[in-house]
Write a protein that binds this DNA or RNA. Structure first.
Lengths: 252, 252
DNA sequence: CGTGTTCTTGAAGCCGTTCAATGAAAGTGG
DNA sequence: CCACTTTCATTGAACGGCTTCAAGAACACG
């Protein structure tokens, strides 16, 4: 698990090292974001869309730069449009648990109370639409179908969280890693269509913090799967060679 | 981890053994349920409340009887009013991961799609208000504040899921068990007020399936905490003797 | 082309699991 | 109400998988 500076009051920028952010441009590609089943855009009519557009700003984030920090005042909501965001919480001793990855189309930071309950930063160059919380909430409150979408989106996130819990539990490293690959593949499929090639833009460290394993075990396990010809390890990803056996490994 | 019959198509009733349910009475105590911050009731005015009341039926569940099963058609939504429900998913090999406990006031089974994504059964004698999904959704769609509550409720569940992920990860058994006790205490506090006495109505098996430990380790760890005078083990619960050291153990 | 980071791979050790047997409690039927 | 039965919890001993520590290789960046 990642060891992060033990002092706990410091900001993510310092904690995770040099966070060289970020350009802010006017939003347009928010609307060009991949439309997923849970996407907000798909339930907005033309007028709403125009109003919605005027709320947000498009922002880009360099790797490791922070979208928001656990415990900070939640004054914005994000919709990832490109790249990959890591959602994580820090333990008091500085270790990091990744509680999810946000792919394009995912909403972030819709908070019950006014404080973020986890942190988010960019795993790779990432773009996201940023909506001021106040106006976003006001916008949603006027539109029941948007509220429904938000509830749906939260339920979807909950389902993903449950899926991850199944991985974090007492399962063998092989099963965790195999299931991880298949899970990520599934999620990319919603964007790019299904493929044997599974991009893994995140680092080994990220994967291990996601699965509750050490970085060494993740590396070893990937290579064991490769030795057994279930996958092929390629730069920034894997190629699935034997879907069925991989599936069976994931379930064990 | 619990081993459950390997065949996977069978119903929960068979899987979990004799499920002797249940009386069904007309609802009244739905309204007397403990009002929690996330409770729906608290945002309903008198008229809405009456309409709401007419939607639901109060049901009681004997221990081990099933509220609903993962994969089944989601034709009802539940609001637990007394007792304790276990929310879980089964692995293909029959092991069980408990993804949450539902306490009085918690909503269950608000599904994105029409199928439950996890199973729920009663850990102890339990009461819940049962709302047909159709009419519940129709009711909510007419009332934006109810929709907001549902979104909030989902977010709250997501927060709890994240909390549990921190426990499932690579932490020592002592930390997991200590954090579990403190977490449950926190949740009871919202109902009964804070107390040094923490009821643990669920079985050791339930706790181990929740924490991703074996039943033996849970037992050993509890007794180790007791040996070190952090807690006192009492029937169906524990008493916290040294909150600060327990807290420190939970964070390690 | 050199430097820092990430990834791989080996060896030793620990923590939790598994298996199994004992003990306690709760439910059941006479 | 008691004796029986069944489930649940505790505890011991041995095994095994993952972690830790550490060194070397591959990669990315300026």
């Amino acid at each position: 698990m990642t060891m992060i500076s033990p002092g706990s009051t410091d900001s993510a920028a310092r904690v995770r090292g040099k966070a060289r952010s970020t350009s802010l441009t006017r939003l347009t590609d928010c609307l060009h974001c991949p439309i997923r089943p849970t996407s907000l855009c798909s339930v907005l009519d033309r007028d709403d869309l125009a109003a919605f557009e005027s709320l947000g700003q498009n922002a880009t984030f360099a790797p490791r730069s922070v979208l928001f920090m656990e415990g900070a005042l939640a004054n914005a909501i994000y919709n990832v449009t490109a790249g990959l965001a890591r959602l994580f919480r820090l333990l008091p001793d500085g270790r990091r648990q990744i509680v999810g990855f946000a792919l394009p189309g995912d909403f972030l930071g819709v908070p019950r109370d006014s404080v973020y309950s986890f942190s988010a930063d960019a795993a790779v160059p990432t773009a996201a639409c940023r909506f001021p919380r106040q106006s976003f909430v006001a916008f949603a409150n006027e539109r029941p179908h948007v509220l429904r979408r938000l509830a749906d989106s939260a339920e979807r996130a909950l389902g993903l969280a449950h899926e991850q819990m199944m991985l974090l539990g007492p399962r063998r490293a092989e099963a965790k890693v195999a299931a991880f690959i298949l899970g990520i593949r599934e999620r990319w499929a919603g964007l790019h269509g299904a493929s044997m090639h599974v991009p893994l833009p995140m680092s080994r460290q990220d994967i291990s913090d996601y699965l509750g394993l050490s970085i060494a075990t993740v590396s070893r396990t990937l290579h064991r799967l490769a030795d057994e010809k279930l996958i092929l390890i390629v730069p920034k990803g894997v190629r699935i060679l034997d879907p069925q056996r991989l599936e069976r490994t994931a379930e064990a």
